[in-house]
Design a binder for these strands. Sequence first.
DNA 1: AAAATAATGTTATATTATAACATAACAAAC
DNA 2: GTTTGTTATGTTATAATATAACATTATTTT
Lengths: 162, 162
Amino acid sequence: MTEQCSHSNIASCTLPSSEQVARLIDQATELCDKRNLRFTRLRRQVLELVCKADQPVGAYHLLDELRESGRSAAPPTVYRALDFLLEQGLVHRLATNNTYLACAHPQQPHAAIFLVCSQCGHTQEVHTGGVIDQLRRQAEQFDFAIEHASVELTGLCSRCRQ
Amino acid sequence: MTEQCSHSNIASCTLPSSEQVARLIDQATELCDKRNLRFTRLRRQVLELVCKADQPVGAYHLLDELRESGRSAAPPTVYRALDFLLEQGLVHRLATNNTYLACAHPQQPHAAIFLVCSQCGHTQEVHTGGVIDQLRRQAEQFDFAIEHASVELTGLCSRCRQ
DNA sequence: AAAATAATGTTATATTATAACATAACAAAC
DNA sequence: GTTTGTTATGTTATAATATAACATTATTTT
């Protein structure tokens, strides 16, 4: 991700080039090391597949790719790896279309907003501190403690609007 | 829904009493009439079931209830009715847990935010013009035209926090 | 090395949703 | 009021997404 990503007030994150995939893997390795967790071959492989995809991918698509790579794999194989990556904040799950995508900023935990194009599927991770903070304040007015915010905006991306 | 609902700047909507269910059905009848759509027995029955539930319900739960009521029903029966009700803005779908709940304000189309308790499942529809407007503005900065906003906040409700 | 823990393999199955085609109900036109 | 077209529903099958449960392997700790 993080092509032109400024991580200032508002940041948008486009898709990863191959060197950036390597960097994300490096970051994940470091991060797991720091947390004393095992970044196994399977977990690395699944993260690579998610990173390399140019769009959010479904679990069974990842399963196919694992199998094509010669590995013996069944649904739990991929779901367990995804669960691990989700817990560590290395990937996000989009509830509106049951897909997974690599997190652009695994270092600092953050709540993100996703712009999902309903036509081409292109998905952008956007960071706008303001919105999430406002949501948190609103929730607090109802004495509600947010554990996870799922904010997914479906619509037409700039390319598909033309 | 709409127990203590002010529909002012911020409005919260609690669960419906039985008279309120009747009112929602009346509103739906009117609305479909106005739009020249058929509010059939099946559609009415499904909306009633969704309204009466004290929490968002799954499609297969509705299916069971339809069958218990004596009606012959299969998955498409309930999904088709739900699709109709969704299109008309009479129910909402929660993507994070694949459930459906009655819309508190079918009259005026609106984007809502949902507070979903991860412990008891209680779900609150909250209307805060501000947040949705802000989301729309943010999206516009990326030349993105929102068609649908799914904003689902998972966490602990006030009762479960204690 | 043995024991304990964590990860993966494997089989089966649960849960959610849709495709495809047949029939029935309804509305419009004649 | 019957024919015709359209919309809704019935019905069967199956797709797509996800998890349970238990066996095996790998890794870490003792």
